[in-house]
Amino acid sequence: MTAPITLYTGPTPNGRKVSIALEEMGLPYTLEYVDILEGDQHTPAFRALNPNNKFPVIIDPDGPGGEELVLWESGAILWYLAEKTGRFLPASGTARHLAHQWLMFQMASVGPMFGQFAHFFFYAKDKHPYSIERYQSEMRRLLDVMEEHLSQHTWFAGDDYTIADMAVLPWVEGTVDVPGIENVDSLRAWVHRLKARPAVTKALDVAREKVRKETVEGGMKDLDDTHRSQLFGEAQYTR
């Protein structure tokens, strides 16, 4: 029996993309919840796994050469799991490069821009109209890029469902049905098609019971300066 992978994560887009991959690939795993509002990511034990103090992190006891592998950065984890299983990443050719392209697009553009919008719109104590407008506009532009592509292709890498789709989905699945988000019919259809997959449905619910009321998904109740310190302030920058 294959020893389970340990997944350190929480109910965020970057965490969920890895749980999607693990569920889709049928890999056994155990969950270690990291409460970022409580400061779990700053503990010596967690920083020994990831000095960048972010989740997700995986520990695969059956890594390359049979040696244990600790790996962080969600895109790198998806790439590793795809190569480990030989699934959801074309073995060669144009489709493989396109899967890598769209994975990098999510890592370099969708995640950072959507995340910065959420920061300034929801979490920042002081509201800066320029910052909100800047990241909202960039988020809208990226939605248009994805909409244009998916109006002509079934999946991001073409004809096959890949880790690129798994990477993008958690960042956009809560956006496409928001009132006022228009002209994203192809992107919305892609989201609904993915969310109909049993593995995706299960993966999106991983750690959902742990959602904090102080987060966007929890309704933004009682977020205070202590939480901001853990995420963006003194606790985040004290090493």
Rank of each mutant, 00 (worst) to 15 (best):
Q41S: 06
I59A: 10
F156Q: 03
L37Y: 15
P51I: 12
L169H: 02
I163V: 14
A45S: 15
W72D: 06
R212F: 00
G93A: 12
S74N: 05
H192V: 06
L223N: 06
S186I: 01
P198Y: 06
T12N: 06
A207K: 02
T94D: 10
A196M: 07
D144Y: 00
M166E: 12
K84V: 07
Q152D: 09
R47A: 11
A99H: 09
V184M: 02
E138T: 05
D177N: 12
D40Q: 07
M1A: 14
A199D: 00
M1R: 13
G66V: 05
D40H: 14
V70D: 04
S74R: 00
A235V: 03
Y29N: 05
A203R: 02
Q230I: 02
A167Q: 04
K210N: 13
R16G: 01
I5E: 03
A45C: 06
T2A: 13
E67W: 00
E68D: 05
V200F: 05
A48G: 13
E38Q: 14
Q136A: 14
R228W: 09
Y33M: 02
K127H: 14
S74T: 10
L103Y: 01
K17W: 06
R188F: 04
A167T: 04
K125I: 00
T162L: 10
P61D: 07
Y135D: 09
R197K: 13
Y80I: 11
R87W: 00
D40R: 04
V168A: 14
M139Y: 03
T226D: 15
D35G: 05
I58A: 03
N52R: 13
G93K: 11
N50F: 04
Y8N: 04
V172E: 03
H149F: 07
F105K: 04
A3L: 15
G66D: 08
D159T: 13
V206D: 03
T30D: 14
A203I: 04
L78K: 05
T43A: 10
G15R: 08
L89R: 00
K17Y: 07
H119P: 13
A124C: 08
A199E: 03
L187P: 01
G174A: 07
T9C: 04
D177R: 07
